[in-house]
Design a protein around this nucleic acid. Structure first.
Lengths: 344, 344
DNA sequence: CCGCCATTTGTAATCGATTACATTTTGTTG
DNA sequence: CAACAAAATGTAATCGATTACAAATGGCGG
């Protein structure tokens, strides 16, 4: 608990350098205010004493926290780690620490994450969880924190925070088009969780494109999932029981595609020979899956980096309101591999 | 930057309750010291004012940081996320925040992570990266932080910090034995990174068991890898070029196994029919890989949780020296799936 | 009802920095 | 060289809690 006794304080440096604490402080944060001479003396004193500023003290005085919160729906999901890596990049440069919290424990509506703000542990937040409720965020606004939050990947409708996301609708279109081009007409879709915002966007893109291409529509071809491996397997089970089976499936996430393919294969339905599958995300593993997964790539490090930059802008007070309301939409890309092929 | 003006301070609560700040402080941290009456009055005042303690101020005064650092070799690797989830669990209970830092940027030897201590941003650290150098840790000791660091998964030889790890040697033995039982005699191994501590342990277990079972030994059957998908593919290339091919491969990680299988399959070598493969880790995806991966399971949430508990013990000053020097070794388990089968 | 000890509460110092304001030094110019 | 503005530095208040120590209160035996 205790940080040890031999802490060097700013006053020790001041003494060593023969100047006041104010001068030492300035040497650190506004060196250009000092004479070259004093500056050198101070830096030498800092060096010789081994002084490090105490961030707690600085933060208290400056009324800031020097940290940001990243709110992740599920840390266990490999999809997120690369995004965090991208953020990590952006924040490290500016010397912000990154607090990571998993929302699986703090269930929507309880606004538990607000504690981080209220306890002044963080200056801002990046929310990767669109499953939080409007109510959660009304608390944020009530506490005047509305200009310190950005969304990444997911978002909550009606909550007007800056956000970065991939072009989900276009991604879904690309997937369907690709399958269409390969000759598929009976295309199914495994969705994300029912209340998830991405689910809607991807389903919409899928349905739109299917209509545009004048493809057959069957309700049972829209299968409810939740982005997980398990839900892919469940969906596979459902599909195998259908009388009128689709020839291709567009999955809302790569994980779902893995679960699906796994189950299909285990039950004698070969992918892609008997059924084509397209995923969404392009996580690292997709390239090495068997068969290598055809999918829609989201540039996750870029997404993270961009979100972090947006938040930093907010914290710097450089928010250009008109810009921030409009979400930043990153392009997605169809990555053609082996899991979808021409219909046989 | 600014936390807003309408902050409620402890003095505001004191005023509202008609008591001193000391009493309010005590109501929060030592309620049993107060009369039931005053306690109620204070809590009511806290409620009505919406007071929240300012953690920066508290931390300054208590000379602690209220946060711990988790040092991860690579946030992008899905292996780690579940471990962090487990830690998250343990720390949340005790109201510690979790700072996550990726060591890919801070290269070994520069002791960059020490900054977190020196800036008093964290009270302790869990290191998941055995790639750090002895030198890095001599800095830790020099700064009296030696009793605030624990290792998880990986560790650094000669650095006597508490640690939690899986039984890597036994895991490797189990893998080789399993392949042996399936009839394999020519067993290859794809190692982890050369300087990694786990690499040594797993290779050792493999070699020992191979010797014990009196299996043939060939230098080229020990192939250098680095836990990554890519290194699995590279290794596959190497194996395909061998005159005397092994019939089974034990991989130092699941990711390596995926890369290996992916490349083998793409080049007409079927797994498990033509070659058996066993992984190490049992990440989520292994179950859904095609073929489902036979592997050695590490209980990652438990590992994370245990490491966190160990660190909390340290921070509480409950370190029982003799216990902490001896590493906590968690059992591993062979998970039999489809990727290894009897020799044909 | 007094005196003494235990319990409860208050006062004020403290944690370690930043910064408004005051003061001193330096530099410029007539 | 005096006068004054600009630049450099110092003094001390401040951020918001915790806690050592002091003071007040209450309980109880005699």
């Amino acid at each position: 608990m205790d940080l040890g006794p031999k802490t060097v304080r700013i006053s020790d440096v001041a003494k060593a350098a023969g100047v006041s604490t104010a001068t030492v402080s300035r040497a650190i944060s506004n060196p250009e205010l000092l004479t070259e001479g004093t500056r050198d003396v101070v830096f030498e004193a800092i060096r010789s004493t081994g002084y490090r500023v105490n961030k707690a003290a600085r933060n208290l005085r400056k009324r800031q926290a020097g940290a940001v919160l990243i709110l992740v729906p599920n840390l266990g999901n490999p999809f997120f780690s690369q995004i965090i890596a991208g953020m990590s990049e952006a924040f490290a440069e500016r010397d912000y620490s990154i607090l990571v919290a998993d929302t699986t424990r703090n269930r929507p509506g309880d606004g538990k994450f607000m504690d981080y703000f209220l306890d002044s542990r963080v200056d801002g937040m990046i929310c990767l969880d669109g499953g939080l409720t409007f109510q959660d965020f009304s608390q944020v606004e009530a506490n005047g924190m509305a200009d310190r939050v950005v969304f990444a990947c997911e978002w909550v409708t009606g909550v007007p925070f800056p956000s970065v996301r991939s072009d989900n609708v276009e991604g879904a279109r690309l997937a369907v088009r690709h399958l269409y081009d390969l000759g598929h007409r009976k295309i199914a879709h495994i969705t994300g969780p029912q209340d998830n915002i991405l689910t809607g966007a991807r389903r919409q893109g899928m349905v739109e494109e299917r209509a545009r291409l004048d493809l057959p529509v069957r309700d049972e071809w829209i299968i409810r999932g939740d982005f997980s491996l398990e839900s892919g397997r469940e969906a596979a089970k459902t599909i195998l029981q259908m009388e009128n089976r689709p020839t291709a499936v567009f999955c809302a996430s790569d994980q779902v595609a893995f679960g699906l393919i796994s189950y299909l294969t285990a039950n004698g339905v070969r992918v892609p020979e008997d059924m084509s599958v397209v995923g969404f995300d392009d996580i690292e593993l997709s390239e090495c899956f068997v068969p290598a997964l055809t999918t829609i790539r989201q540039d996750r490090p870029a997404l993270g980096f961009k979100a972090a930059s947006l938040l930093l802008d907010c914290l710097d007070g450089n928010t250009r309101p008109e810009q921030s309301i409009e979400p930043v939409v990153l392009d997605v890309e169809l990555v053609v591999r082996q899991s979808a092929t021409t219909i046989s």
